[in-house]
Design a protein around this nucleic acid. Sequence first.
DNA 1: AAGTCCATCCTACTTCGAGTAGGTTACTGG
DNA 2: CCAGTAACCTACTCGAAGTAGGATGGACTT
Lengths: 197, 197
Amino acid sequence: MTTAKRKRVPRAERERQMIEVAERVFTERGYGAASMDEIAELVGVSKPMLYEYFHSKEGLLLACIRQSRAALREATEQATVGAVSAEDALRRGLLAFFVFIRERREAWSLLRHEMALIGTPAADEIEQTRRQQTDLIVAVMSEYFDDELRAEASAEFVVGACERLAIWCERFPDVTPEMATDYAMDMLWSGLSRRAR
Amino acid sequence: MTTAKRKRVPRAERERQMIEVAERVFTERGYGAASMDEIAELVGVSKPMLYEYFHSKEGLLLACIRQSRAALREATEQATVGAVSAEDALRRGLLAFFVFIRERREAWSLLRHEMALIGTPAADEIEQTRRQQTDLIVAVMSEYFDDELRAEASAEFVVGACERLAIWCERFPDVTPEMATDYAMDMLWSGLSRRAR
DNA sequence: AAGTCCATCCTACTTCGAGTAGGTTACTGG
DNA sequence: CCAGTAACCTACTCGAAGTAGGATGGACTT
């Protein structure tokens, strides 16, 4: 698969291989059921190497999550570059998000696992990676809010809402990213007042 | 503590004791770091009893989660009984939710752990317990939506948004349940359009 | 009052996986 | 060709999930 014979490989590349395999295994088996032995074997390396490079199972998951978050952030940020207004930026960002979770299944599945680290030493790190996402939204939201605290709260609100909506979408393959964006944008922009009888 | 000497106790009550202790231990240590041995010891019983009654560690967590979800559902449902409109019901439900997570720390902390079961056989059960929450919201939302799918999506949207907002609130003890409700209700009801320049 | 039956409960394992100690070999630069 | 180091390994320990198989309190019968 990888290369024919077990050869020596520089650290940077091994790390990439390890993360790639780990991402797959964590996604397939779930964090708890995944074993470091299995990951090591699939990489074609012995277990202590994993510990050498990531010091713990949590550390390995964290590395995977970091990468996936970075990819997500990259995708959503790129999407907003040509936006003509805050509303437009929001819509584009949402669409990019829903496209991402549809196309990059493993990455998204991994991000859903981050809650498995609650209560562990890695929890702070996780919050840090989430910040990447909320900061992006805060930047857009501050267009609408003078109150700093309220802007932050609203950003969390949006992120949580969309994550949950994304999970819901997985049960309905017919719901396109465009539809999801529409649902979300309609709620965020117009609110419920417009629908009141 | 419980009663002086290790006496025989009927199953129903033992289960209650076990869940009570487990809730505390899972919350304090986190799911992964909690040990069945420790829980058994704190209950004052041997480990096989836990397995007799809950068959696995996951099963025990699931039982705890079910109970906490039931309490949350009860609290939010009760809150909406005297509502004069859907808008009012929504606001009351939100307030009850934010009060709940402030007052019943362990229960809420436990619910945050449910993601730890993603990818395990218990995942379906978990989705089931979430339904209790979303169904309640769907009932309120259907006031606003003709489209059934959209109503469900919006309910998920609301639940996700509020859960995330609740997690955020934990970092700011000064943010009262009333403020959180206001933040959420403002977004949900008025939307962002009202704030556009 | 003694015997039967079962729900409650226990001790003493097995198994499996996270994490580690300590050594070995390939490549790299002089 | 000889360091020296970066990549790598075998062979463990240790702790926690889960189990086998048996013991015992006590309720109910006769």
